[in-house]
Design a binder for these strands. Structure first.
Lengths: 331, 331
DNA sequence: ACTCCTCTTGCTACCGGTAGCAAGCTTCGC
DNA sequence: GCGAAGCTTGCTACCGGTAGCAAGAGGAGT
């Protein structure tokens, strides 16, 4: 494999200096049409294009954005990743996907991100502990950080997320109007602030309706199996008479798992015997086999705003955006 | 925001030359313990870590792998992306996600990939036209290219994929044994070679069983709606007596859409009135509400082999791996 | 024809590392 | 006690660009 052509080689071929070659590839640079043509022609035959790595080193901008993701189990991630990469690319930025799972610790990944000189770091719905971030975020030369699709209390790290309080308010209003009075809530990972947030708001809004004591079903993690297990455990340990009449799940993937158990294993009807509500509005939830009532996050808006902040077209600050209740047959 | 510390600054603080600083951070370099300690201490207080961008420029290796994806509608992509990024990171390689959708043309993305000096380029299940690639792939300095989870006839571009012929053979054997005799096949995008491949093998194996004329349902693209529409169109235009008794869909997402229409809109039973089979074994297919019989691609093996080829631990060459039939209630 | 001004071009210095040579210092054998 | 071998250390040159200065070229005005 031959090496890539460099500006110097093109310069020799075109009979100019390498700086003139560079100028031919720099929009708005001071160069005559004649030289530009000469250079472009030589570049064409040598198949030259500027080396972006060298440019990055010299300009201190890589045009790369790191996206940290830790929960790939939620199908909601894929469409947002698509949107994010599309909008970033439209601004000339590339998406570097960084997998933060059990095998890779956050601190290591953050150090690496610093060494790579990313233009920005996006924490996409990740379960970072705030302490971990707080330290790193303030290091000199560390790229600006943002949190996407999750709340953040980290100072200096703006979060763009769906307004959970407003969302849960809409959901509880809807459920109350439909006549449900014995609410349950299924949580995934209990340590996440989002988790506590959604549960917290849910309980609060029911309290305002005069209903205390939301039953909690703890799935422990976010997966259909976990949701199924939690639902199974609850239904096995409760008497039909005392049961909740509506189960709100922290996200759709839990809700689908729960719904399967409710219908297939216990023969209950949804929503007549037990209504189910999810969050995120993932695609399978909308399939006729489920008809899951859910809440759609404003993905496009969140991504657009995030990209605008990264490119500096908007001042970076925390933003909570309204989503949209998607009523279907399950509640 | 202060700048990052450089080796030169650390060198001054530690009273050595910058090359000694570099050596302290280079495993196996020739340096005394005393100097190394001195340097590491100075580095600690200045919060220094080597600049990987500069290293990349000098060594001509970026430790970044570009992954081209065009079809984000298939949920199958997410778990594979997770695996891929995990395994690449375990080898010290980062994943750069490149979105090739309607808005971005392939050629442009490929040029960009060349300019960025990626260590490798993976075409992940993408619908590249072979001509487009053929040209680019041979350019000097272009990173080695691989095709993941899709066949490829491009010379010099090895593909790691599931053995479609073997898979379809297993599927047809299974369906024949179960007594099905009137097969149908639903295609997504007709231009893709994979599509033609699966359909081709399916028809071939039925022919060997003495059954000619597989009915084709063309969905045109890969989405649940497209699958639903194609199924609807077929069921509306065919008489119950002459209908196929088993519908194999090119992937699960089509199959789920078809299954919904078959059951909810036409009141048919699956598999009694019409059996349905998919491909990819995506998560929702396994939910009790569907119980979709499918074929699982050997994702882990494919990814492991791909990463081994990229790191040079394996010689790069085309490989077709056997997958696994996942029989469920739908067929 | 001459001056002045502007546009173009080449240049030095630099981004922050790597590669590999050569000098200086140890260490060892005899 | 001395020379040879080996380890450390500093050095030059380089990766392929960018930034901005200064000299040269070209054109307008008088």
């Amino acid at each position: 494999m031959r090496k890539r052509a460099t500006a110097k080689e093109v310069a020799e071929a075109a009979g100019v200096s390498k700086w003139t070659v560079i100028r031919a590839f720099t929009p708005g640079a001071s160069i005559t049409d004649a030289s530009r043509q000469k250079v472009l022609q030589a570049a064409e035959t040598l198949n030259y294009s500027p080396n972006l790595l060298a440019r990055s080193l010299a300009t201190n901008t890589t045009h790369q954005v790191a996206v940290f993701v830790d929960d790939f189990a939620n199908p909601h991630k894929l469409p947002v990743l698509e949107l994010l990469s599309e909008r970033l690319q439209a601004e000339g930025l590339l998406t570097v996907l960084i997998n933060i799972n059990r095998h890779f610790d956050h601190v290591h990944a953050l150090i690496n991100a610093g060494q790579r000189q990313f233009d920005a770091v996006i924490l996409f719905g990740t379960a970072f502990r705030e302490e971990t971030l707080g330290d790193r975020g303030l290091e000199p030369g560390f790229p600006p950080m943002f949190v996407l699709a999750r709340g953040s209390q980290i100072p200096g790290v703006p979060a763009i997320a769906c307004d959970a309080e407003r969302a849960l308010g809409e959901i509880v209003d809807y459920l109350f109007d439909k006549g449900y009075r014995r609410p349950g809530f299924m949580t995934g990972a209990r340590t996440l602030s989002t988790a506590l947030g959604r549960r917290h708001h849910y309980a609060n809004f029911w309290r305002r309706k005069g209903i205390e004591g939301v039953v909690e079903l703890a799935a422990g993690r976010y997966s259909a199996e976990a949701g199924a297990e939690a639902a199974r455990a609850y239904l096995n340990s409760s008497s039909p008479a005392s049961r909740i009449d509506v189960l709100m799940c922290e996200n759709d993937i839990l809700a689908l798992g729960a719904m399967d158990v409710v219908r297939s294993e216990f023969g209950l009807r949804v929503p007549e015997d037990l209504a189910v509500v999810g969050f995120d509005n993932i695609e399978p939830g909308g399939f006729p086999a489920y008809g899951l009532t859910s809440y759609e996050q404003p993905n496009e808006k969140m991504v657009d705003i995030m990209v605008a902040m990264i490119t500096g077209k908007r001042t970076a600050k925390m933003m909570l955006l309204p989503g949209r209740l998607v009523p279907r047959s399950s509640a």
